[in-house]
Every structure is written in structure tokens, then in C-alpha cells.
């Protein structure tokens, strides 16, 4: 599988990555060579094989429904780039 420029642009859009026009060919080449590598998988017959999502095949443990986290707004927002009146600020969200 090899990619073209528009694939790269679409992927970058989905991943919310700005990329410079002049870097697109390099990305296209790199990503295509990676995809070529991973395409080796297609040689293996995996018919009927159950995908392995977790190495231990475990079951989810359930948490008791009790409040354990108290208000830590001040500490948690101390690392925030922009806040006001306890809110995180972002450029206007258009609904």
C-alpha cells in the first residue's frame, strides 16, 4: 500500500497535525515505506483467529461507586495554559 499526497493531508487533518507543504513528500515516502513493511502481514492466513486485544485475556474489574476524588481544581489547573473563573479557555466553540 502506498499513499499519495491527499491521503497524507487527510490523515494529518484527522490527527489534527499541521504539516508544512514542503514536508508532505517526505511524510508520504516515510509512511508509504512503513505501510509496505506492515503489508507483510497480509501473507499470513489469519482466518478464524480471534484478535488478541489484551495479552492476558483478562476481565474488567469493577470499582465500587463511592466518591474518592475531592475538588482539586486549583492544583489541576495550575498547569493549564489558560483559565478564567475555573473554566479552561479555548478559541470560540461554534455549535
Amino acid at each position: 500500500m502506498s499513499l499519495d499526497q491527499s491521503d497524507v493531508e487527510r490523515i494529518a487533518y484527522l490527527a489534527r497535525l499541521a504539516i508544512d507543504e514542503q514536508d508532505i513528500p517526505q511524510y508520504t515516502e516515510n509512511l508509504s515505506s512503513i505501510l509496505q513493511l506492515v503489508d507483510e502481514m497480509q501473507a499470513i492466513d489469519t482466518t478464524g483467529v480471534e484478535p488478541l486485544a489484551h495479552p492476558l485475556d483478562g476481565e474488567q474489574r469493577l470499582r465500587v461507586d463511592e466518591v474518592s476524588e475531592m475538588n482539586q481544581r486549583e492544583q489541576l489547573q495550575s498547569v493549564a495554559p489558560a483559565t478564567e473563573e475555573g473554566l479552561f479557555l479555548v478559541p470560540k466553540v461554534i455549535e
Partner: peptide
């Protein structure tokens, strides 16, 4: 929730 009151043209996020 996104709050759209005017924070200098920004939106405020309450999580």
C-alpha cells in the same frame, strides 16, 4: 460543556 459567555471572545470549558 462549552460555555459561550464572552470570555474575551473565547469559550470556557467545564468538565
Amino acid at each position: 460543556k462549552s460555555l459561550h459567555e464572552d470570555f474575551h471572545g473565547m469559550s470556557g470549558i467545564d468538565l
